[in-house]
Design a protein around this nucleic acid. Structure first.
Length: 599
RNA sequence: GGUCCGGUAGCUCAGUUGGAUAGAGCAUCAGCCUUCUAAGCUGAGGGUCAUUGGUUCGAAUCCAAUCCGGAUCACCA
């Protein structure tokens, strides 16, 4: 149990004993870290108790403080400052905390239990390469999966690939028309980029054809439907759905190129999946659910035969689920896929990492499943994140303003190379080591940059101002870690200290403020890790790790480890930095960020 | 128009189950490498927490209204 939680319990216990006639169970007990300008480590806020207990702050604080001092071993003294009870924690506590945990690799993590959670993320379209916005999605999904796993959950990482539909046919049509048989092998272009180029080509051509028709006097909306290349794409979709072997073969070939490209990118990003779903295999699902809904009377049919759900009672509109001709819409297949996932893995929770533009869609999805009494409904959670925008506004592939994911990775690695060389840190390293280091720093910076802000906030990225490698960055954390490793390389670590000597030691020689700040932060890691899982929010780990690294740097500046005053002090400090490095490494690894031993 | 999300330092963001004088990073300025890695440390300046009202011992945080920005409300996916 964390210290804050212990203090809370002790306070509750104290109130019960001191005021046996008052029901104190509902009183809110707030335990905070004491502000640096006051003496003490943790603070109990007294105000909420005053009315119920009919007490003055000073009197109550004194009673509480005396009780806590007498009944627990935790504190050495207390101070009451205008309604706040500031408690000073015994140095013993911190020393024993370190002794117990400094070498525990899984500190803060929970043992495995059988709650099953699926995290669906990435979910690319196979008509174009991944862009900057996809990076946020991939890092978020991957990080959340890691965080949930560290909290003991059984996690299934899933990717639902959008591999069919009119947009895919557009790339195919353009390739048929203009590529003259070009392949990734022949052109040397990465498969997803090659296909993406033809998607762009389609749009250019389409625009030209529409313009031509309009110049010939056709109404624009009509022209948009009549453009020959669009009709070709629609015809191709019909043939695809009718299982035309030629079209299916082309489709498989081109998707194969894209997957090869995606896999290269995924490997570089360090993201992976346990289960792949393909829309070409799921897009017909959901009809039976709709039919059952009709039988139950939850859904209704209109005159033209189309099937709807009425959500007006929930403050929403009516929503179409099957067209008049019996074909599905997007929502229909999502209903089916939700059930499929649930049946495949017996999920307790199903997390969808999808942009906030689909908030409404996800709300409706969950609502409909509830109305249909589908057991998968309860577990659905939409991890909604804001778009990554450019200073000029949203990225638009048609206007060529997208920042390509592969380019971005290359740029970050190049940037870290420049900065490493500039800092003169390349000496004594092999080319291979340096290559690895640049990748670690570049990718780390990219991931941290995208994960450090609250997922639900949209973020603005200015490509002209490259991502910083100073301050609140992965580089800062990596650097602190490398410094620790450097010390540990030079020091022999006596793993079993003499306990009695240690006890005398920490009674006679108090730990310093810098040491205490560091160990207090170490002690809070379990709480942060748990919060990150509860809120599906990796940015909590970014903030925490940065704070920890910052505190290590101050500590490092103030105290020498190798030249500590005596061997006990040295040992204490070694435990401190070993544990710091370990937590940094674990926390960052959950986010997919590696920490080098030298940089 | 309905619904949802956001508005905190020049910029990017923490802080929102109500707690002490609102915090970081970047940028600006001033210091610190003969000493375990200066990608670092220490300090300074910088705020009407969008606005107004309410709730109370106490509000950036809760409630109401207003203003600004964004998303969404398709027989598209």
């Amino acid at each position: 149990m964390t210290l804050a939680a212990q203090i809370k319990l002790a306070t509750e216990d104290a109130l019960k004993h001191l005021f046996p006639k008052v029901d104190v169970t509902d009183l809110p007990i707030t335990v905070n870290q004491t502000k640096p300008e006051f003496e003490g480590d943790y603070t109990v806020v007294l105000f909420p108790f005053l009315k119920a207990l009919k007490q003055k702050p000073d009197a109550l604080g004194a009673q509480l403080g005396d009780y806590l001092l007498a009944k627990t071993e935790l504190f050495t003294k207390y101070e009451i400052v205008s309604g706040f009870l500031n408690l000073t924690v015994r140095d013993h506590y911190w020393v024993y905390f370190l002794l117990n945990h400094f070498n525990d690799i899984h500190f803060g993590e929970k043992p495995k239990h059988d709650r099953r959670i699926m995290v669906e993320y990435s979910s690319p379209n196979t008509n174009k390469p991944l862009h900057f916005g996809h990076l946020r999605n991939n890092f978020l999904g991957s990080a959340v999966a890691g965080i949930l796993k560290a909290n003991g959950n059984q996690v299934v990482k899933a990717n639902l690939v959008n591999d069919r539909g009119i947009h895919i046919c557009k790339s195919m049509v353009a390739w048929q028309r203009y590529a003259e048989g070009d392949t990734p092998e022949r052109t040397g272009i990465k498969g997803d980029h090659l296909v993406g180029d033809y998607y762009v080509k389609f749009n250019d051509e389409y625009k030209a054809e529409v313009a031509k028709l309009v110049s010939e006097g056709m109404n624009e909306t009509v022209a948009e439907k009549e453009a020959p290349i669009m009709k070709e794409a629609q015809e191709m979709l019909r043939r695809w759905e009718a299982n035309d072997p030629d079209i299916r073969r082309l489709w498989q070939t081109m998707n194969g190129w894209v997957y090869k490209g995606f896999n290269e990118t995924y490997t570089r990003l360090g993201v992976s999946f346990d289960k792949m779903y393909y829309e070409s295999e799921t897009y017909l699902l959901g009809k039976n659910i709709v039919e059952q809904g009709l039988e139950k009377g939850v859904l209704f049919k209109k005159e033209d035969g189309s099937v709807w759900v009425d959500l007006t009672e929930d403050g929403l509109d009516q929503k179409l689920l099957l067209r008049g001709d019996g074909t599905s819409v997007y929502m229909t297949q999502d209903l089916g896929t939700a059930k499929l996932k649930y049946d495949d893995f017996k999920l307790d929770q199903s997390v969808y990492v999808i942009g906030d533009e689909q908030n409404y869609h996800m709300q409706v999805l969950k609502l409909i499943l509830h109305k249909l009494d589908e057991p998968c409904a309860d577990g659905i959670y939409h991890l909604s994140y804001g778009m990554v925008e450019l200073p000029s506004g949203r990225m638009k592939s048609r206007e060529g303003t997208v920042v390509d994911a592969d380019d971005m990775i290359d740029e970050m690695i190049e940037l870290s190379k420049e900065q490493t060389e500039q800092a003169g840190k390349t000496e004594g390293c092999t080319q291979e080591e340096l290559h690895k280091l640049y990748e670690t720093i570049g990718l780390g910076a990219l991931k941290f940059y995208l994960l450090r802000v609250d997922p639900k906030k949209k973020m603005i990225f200015d490509p002209k101002e490259s991502i910083d490698l100073h301050g609140f960055t992965a580089t800062f954390i990596q650097y602190a870690h490398a410094r620790i490793c450097s010390i540990l390389r030079k020091e022999n670590i006596p793993l079993l200290p003499n306990n009695t000597k240690f006890q005398t030691f920490c009674q006679t020689q108090p730990i310093t403020p810098a040491e205490k700040r560091l160990v207090i932060t170490l002690e809070q890691y379990p709480t942060i890790l748990e919060d990150a899982a509860n809120e599906f929010n990796p940015s909590l780990l970014c903030n925490y790790s940065f704070q920890l690294a910052q505190q290590f740097n101050s500590f490092y500046d103030e105290h020498s480890i190798s030249k500590a005053e005596n061997s006990e002090k040295k040992h204490l400090r070694l435990m401190l930095i070993i544990m710091t490095a370990q937590i940094l490494r674990r926390a960052m690894s959950l986010l997919g960020i590696k920490l080098p031993e030298k940089m």
